[in-house]
Simulated assay, not measured.
Amino acid sequence: MQEYERKQLLERVEREGATVGADIPETITVQGEEIDLRTFVFEIKRRDTVPPGERDRVEQAKRNLRRERLERLEAIEEGAVSREEGEELARSIIGIDRALNVLENLGPTNLEQEQKAQQAADKKRWMSFLKKALGHEDDNTQGRGR
């Protein structure tokens, strides 16, 4: 895969609206175990609230999905995959993000915690934009000392 293709894939999966219209994968392999992801997500979403007995299961699923997303993203970042494999990884990452969005928005919400998370995400997007605009894409500093 060419460097510009790798960057395009990374931009696509990190785009803010990437999950709009995206499908949750029917099945996904997470840590060597195949999961019926779409069925799981819709089964949990169908309920008004997540029962206390299911909360641990949902939280574990979210942790596993985040870990799997990171592993797939790193495979693209390292560039050790073909263009076709990269495309498939990007599609699966966007599908994982879609599933995570649904699972994150279940049940009663803590508005204060949600607001802090939104502010942190806004700050991260802003810093990313500034780094790109100033040509510091590969700079690992976070603006300290400037």
Rank of each mutant, 00 (worst) to 15 (best):
E3M: 13
Y4S: 15
Y4Q: 15
K7Q: 12
Q8G: 12
L9V: 04
E11V: 11
R12A: 12
R12I: 10
V13G: 00
E14S: 11
E16F: 13
E16K: 10
G17T: 13
A18F: 03
T19Y: 05
V20I: 15
V20Y: 11
V20D: 13
P25M: 03
E26I: 03
I28P: 01
T29Y: 02
V30Q: 02
V30A: 02
Q31E: 10
G32A: 01
E33V: 15
E33I: 10
D36K: 14
D36G: 09
V41P: 01
I44W: 03
I44Y: 02
R46W: 07
R47G: 13
T49K: 04
P51F: 00
P52E: 07
E54P: 02
E54L: 12
D56K: 07
D56T: 07
R57W: 00
V58L: 02
E59T: 08
Q60I: 13
K62L: 08
N64P: 12
N64W: 05
L65H: 04
R66I: 08
E68G: 05
R72V: 03
A75T: 03
E78K: 15
G79L: 05
A80L: 14
V81L: 12
S82R: 03
S82W: 06
E84P: 00
E87T: 08
L89Y: 03
R91E: 07
G95A: 02
G95E: 02
G95S: 03
D97Y: 05
L100H: 01
V102P: 01
V102S: 00
L103N: 02
E104V: 03
N105F: 04
N105L: 09
N105M: 10
L106W: 02
G107S: 07
T109Q: 11
T109W: 07
N110K: 02
K116L: 13
A117Y: 01
A117Q: 08
A117H: 04
Q119W: 10
K123V: 12
R125F: 14
S128F: 07
F129K: 15
F129P: 11
F129W: 14
F129T: 14
F129C: 11
F129S: 14
L130F: 15
K132C: 06
L134P: 08
L134Y: 12
L134F: 14
D138Y: 09
D139R: 07
D139P: 09
D139L: 08
N140K: 08
N140H: 08
N140D: 12
T141V: 10
Q142G: 13
G145T: 07
